[in-house]
Design a protein around this nucleic acid. Sequence first.
DNA 1: ACGCAGGTTCCACAATATGGAACTTCGCCG
DNA 2: CGGCGAAGTTCCATATTGTGGAACCTGCGT
Lengths: 249, 249
Amino acid sequence: MTATQAGSQAVDRAAALLALVVESGDPRTFTSLVEDVGLAKSTTSRLLQALERNRLVRRDRAGSFHPGPLFAVYAARHDTTGDLVELAQPAMDRLSELTGETVNLAVPRAGELVQIAQVDSSYLLGATNWLGVSVPPHCTALGKVFYAHRVMALQKGELRWPTDRAMTRPQLERELAEVVRRGWALAWEELEEGLAAIAAPVHAADGSVVAAISVSGATTRITRSEVPGLGATLVEQGRTISQLLGHQP
Amino acid sequence: MTATQAGSQAVDRAAALLALVVESGDPRTFTSLVEDVGLAKSTTSRLLQALERNRLVRRDRAGSFHPGPLFAVYAARHDTTGDLVELAQPAMDRLSELTGETVNLAVPRAGELVQIAQVDSSYLLGATNWLGVSVPPHCTALGKVFYAHRVMALQKGELRWPTDRAMTRPQLERELAEVVRRGWALAWEELEEGLAAIAAPVHAADGSVVAAISVSGATTRITRSEVPGLGATLVEQGRTISQLLGHQP
DNA sequence: ACGCAGGTTCCACAATATGGAACTTCGCCG
DNA sequence: CGGCGAAGTTCCATATTGTGGAACCTGCGT
């Protein structure tokens, strides 16, 4: 067998098995792993037992294999923000190429909208660096995505609007229903005059919305007639990221 | 070398190295791994290269080792609730042994309090199964922990109290400051007459509060004089879980 | 009771993994 | 600027491990 490097065939084989289990998303039977890995049953059995003994896989009562406690420890103590950013980066770069505008990724956290990554605009008149900037979510496209999908609760009390494009609460609720229907959200000069943004959701494997991705720029470039096309593009890129997270539409 | 089983020494060795990297929390140098694992430098180098090739570790620019992309994939697409429950289970069992009362674990999610695990009371007069039950957080011990640590925002508007033990908002704010000071929260017949609960926070590696653990039961058993002692016990078990998450006080 | 699928164990032997030595690279210090 | 030491990599003779075919075990369905 062709080896990338001498003296690690057993480790390579065990790792290949491990990758099959971790990337599967579903429990894996011994037989299905034997078929996929292409090794003798005895070899596969021995390698799986070594992986189990070392907490890299675990078996459920039916005997099927799952990622083991070492993965759980990593996930439980690791801030996955970096992982999400890493997975989302190609889609964000793609959006940047396609539009030349500022691209952002945000997550809902402690009931607030948190920007975790940004690809800057190629225009001089671009949006600010939004990371760490606190904005009223109801007048942002990203915030509307989170409100529409109920991963953030719309605050009670008076909603303040920084521009004169104020909405009543019923108007906003109708807007949010529209976001769910068409898949994307728009904020047109609601946060600042001359600033437009479109956003779409990112779903986890279980379908829940865990992030949103957006494009923003000047209304002199992002015309009203372009918005539906941009919205469709954002939905598509949001779907791409969701699929990387194991979501199946 | 004593082997648990024939034919997997290389996998066991590679897995031991991997565990050192994943459980470390910090980047690991090649030299520090050689020291800890106790193998020849050439063996360690070869095993680490195999782990890197198989995406189980990665090296940063300085050459130090980190958990690799396979862990990131797992974390990004895996709901870590199950992992947190698994890590917290021994501490919850311990609290159940010590008190005999209902023990709960909750997380803040989308600005709301979500119960994710419970160990039932050994008493007949025990608390309900809280999982999935929506309660007003301001009159629960768990909710007070989240409000006190600002991982949930106290709602504007009138606070409704199901019993006659209502508090004014300033009274509640003072209570929350007290929660931070002494480390634990108390709800004494605020949710229901005859029901008492004490809760303490669980911290992630970065210090942020990601969960809370509580004990609840009838005021006929949980007397007022016992509350401080129970509070201290909960703080201790909360700290135990936090340490498993990589938090260092 | 029998057959079969899923999975485990045994062991002769082929071939891999080992580690000591040699080597490379880089930063620090005189 | 050269020497030195630490960190890390590569080489290869050889010891010993990992392999897979065969035999075996277990549970379930007929």
